[in-house]
Design a protein around this nucleic acid. Structure first.
Lengths: 129, 129
DNA sequence: TGCAACCTTCACATAAGTGGTAATGTCAAA
DNA sequence: TTTGACATTACCACTTATGTGAAGGTTGCA
């Protein structure tokens, strides 16, 4: 499919799809006319990229992570560069840390919101008095 | 305490502490000589800031979140700006989303690493053959 | 007195986008 | 077949966020 179609299916602007290609995150083939040609599996992949980017993972890391996330078939374990396992383990730990931080802070905010709501219920005159 | 001491206690460079002040994340008072004077509670606060920044939360959001995280005493519910509750709820949801994404991806990476290790155990000749 | 710690300010760095322009390709209707 | 609308291309410059580096001056302290 061409860039416009992929853009509609993923909700990611064409502009961004070209940008992600520039970053090495996706590599569509080209049609005779020079247009980019995206395969179906890239729809899913773009979603994963957005998820990772939104999670604050830098794109140079995403490049390494992506192959591990495309696991529709068996996991491919051939041609593993020596440092990759460690890099992945490192990134996995960083992600665990992030998850812990976020969970802690989200829970704190949740409690705070609950307190706000309770206060509003008990004494709703604060702003009107 | 002065900036150097806080820097040592938090592991955050003085440069960064000044930068966070510029971003409105911390507001030390000043001594007569113009030096910044940090109170003790800011040690904890700087740690929280680092955690949030590392989790990919933009600093303009952190400014809003921080007061909710400083809950050593009772939760302060006075003078709540009208939009704040919604903003917090919104951010809480975004954080939940991030947590889900991260968890999913971390688990995928964990599985991948396990597969790598297993392959290395079963056929350790791959790189030597 | 001399050096380390501190101050401000300006500029630069990197990552992740965004915007604008000009040229080319596609397609359908006149 | 030509015209017009729209998609796509490449390229360049700009923006925002998060820092970092360095210059040049002031303060603290041994």
């Amino acid at each position: 499919m061409r860039i416009g179609e992929l853009s509609k299916k993923t909700g990611v602007a064409s502009r961004m799809l070209r940008y992600y290609e520039e970053q090495g995150l996706i590599s569509p083939t080209r049609l005779d006319n020079g247009y980019r040609d995206y395969q179906d599996y890239l729809i899913d992949r773009v979603g994963k990229i957005r998820g990772l980017v939104d999670s604050g993972i830098p794109s140079r890391i995403i490049v390494d992570i992506l192959p591990c996330l495309d696991q529709e078939q068996d996991i491919v374990v051939r041609n593993v560069e020596p440092g990759l396992r460690d890099l992945l383990a490192q990134e996995r730990d960083r992600m665990s840390q992030k998850i812990d931080f976020l969970t802690q802070n989200r829970d704190a905010i949740t409690k705070y919101i609950a307190a706000l709501d309770e206060a509003a219920t008990e004494a709703p005159l604060a702003s009107a008095s």
